[in-house]
Design a protein around this nucleic acid. Structure first.
Lengths: 229, 229
DNA sequence: CCCTTGCGTGACAAATGGGTGACGGACGCT
DNA sequence: AGCGTCCGTCACCCATTTGTCACGCAAGGG
């Protein structure tokens, strides 16, 4: 998913956040000082910086300013964390360009939701996605429906993701490793055979169109283009 | 877009809001006192008044009362800004007819979202948007009424918002996170199961039409289009 | 033609997600 | 103050989903 740089000098809190964000599927990195934060940000430009206002060396506001001044990092999303609802700090936080603001104490759940919300908003405003159509197959991401030869076919959430991934990469072989990483999220190390099982289940549901989901022995799987020779 | 009159005696905050609302496409005007606010309102009747409760001369509540008493301005939307502690003020704010309130400290994003939401809500009746009708369901946003098979069914405020959100997105799956963010407002962090409970309550009230509110396991909820194949 | 390796498949247990009833706190009304 | 309503949370239970395994077939190389 997205990469989050957590900047807070209270290690306990930082690690708590870290643990929870990882659990929510983010990749993370910690920094306990402003300098370390800037270094880390330069090194692997994160998608979001979670920035505590009170830091031992630079203040969060200064860190913010530095980030905004760096052309590489200008567009990073910044979420400020502050201990109290200190009006003045908050205002300065927005002035230097924080994208959102979370007041401590906050629930981790809320923090995660805010992060996801802010990321979603900054991403493409994809209200609805045109369905992927392909020969007898049609996959409607928005409605989360799947049709084979015009007949709706129910897929589980995982099957749907797998099918979407394959259809979006029409004709290209996807290795097991790729699929594990991109469909499953790689978080849990799975037996590779798991994929085979799910491909089989998907084929069952494809019925007559099962031939479209090809095995490439020793490599992976792909959806073939029915219109191509 | 819409014209907003910002009334707050803390100039820094007022200007911060001003800056951000302009960024969000609103036209704005500032007033730092209650008198100035009333004058500005009379002069160029705004669509929304963002009204701080604590003002040097008149209180926000008095300003509100004056606005409501003026036949020209009676229908202006009023959003109160209150500090968290002033619970009692909040209540009085609604009593005199504020349309929404935002508790300080608020994130500017939240404020903008609230403004847009309230404008959308109020824009609907003027354009005489027909009620959302859908098979046996009819939801009249203007009158805030809901009918199942022609029979009026009372929904709580929250249920109404949830139903409206789902019906307005006919056929599209809405994830729990989306619902939390857009129906609940994500200002408060909620257990995810809260949504399930409310969906269940909604279904109860749908009676025979309960099947129209579908669960998409592992994904979210959607209203099905009864006219679609 | 045989052997090796990769894959398909059916079975199964564990994990997950969601429906539901109950509870209690907060709020608003009288 | 007393009462009813609304809403968030919880615990329990069930159905479905999902990961894993074992078995056997099929493909491909020698």
């Amino acid at each position: 998913m997205s990469h989050v740089l957590i900047v807070d000098d209270e290690r306990d809190l930082a690690e708590l956040i870290d643990f929870n964000l990882r659990g929510a599927g983010f990749s993370t990195r910690l920094a306990f000082t402003g300098e370390a934060a800037l270094a880390a940000a330069r090194e692997q430009s994160p998608d979001v910086v979670l920035l505590d206002l009170m830091l031992p060396d630079l203040s969060g506001i200064e860190v913010c300013r530095h980030l905004r001044a760096n052309s590489q990092l200008r567009d990073v999303l910044i979420v400020m964390l502050t201990a109290k609802s200190e009006e003045a700090d908050r205002i300065r936080g927005f002035e230097v360009g924080a994208d959102d603001y979370v007041v401590k104490p906050f629930s981790v759940r809320e923090l995660v939701l805010r992060l996801k919300a802010i990321l979603r908003r900054s991403a493409a405003p994809k209200e609805s996605v045109p369905p992927l159509a392909l020969g007898p197959l049609r996959l409607d991401v928005t409605a989360h429906r799947f049709y084979v030869e015009g007949q709706e076919t129910s897929l589980t959430a995982l099957e749907f993701r797998l099918m979407e991934h394959l259809m979006a990469r029409l004709g290209r072989v996807q290795s097991r490793e790729q699929l594990l990483e991109e469909v499953w999220g790689l978080s849990s190390s799975l037996e590779t055979r798991t994929i085979d099982t799910h491909v089989m289940r998907l084929r069952d549901k494809l019925g007559n169109a099962r031939a479209l989901l090809e095995t490439v022995r020793g490599v992976g799987y792909r959806i073939v283009d029915p219109t191509a020779g």
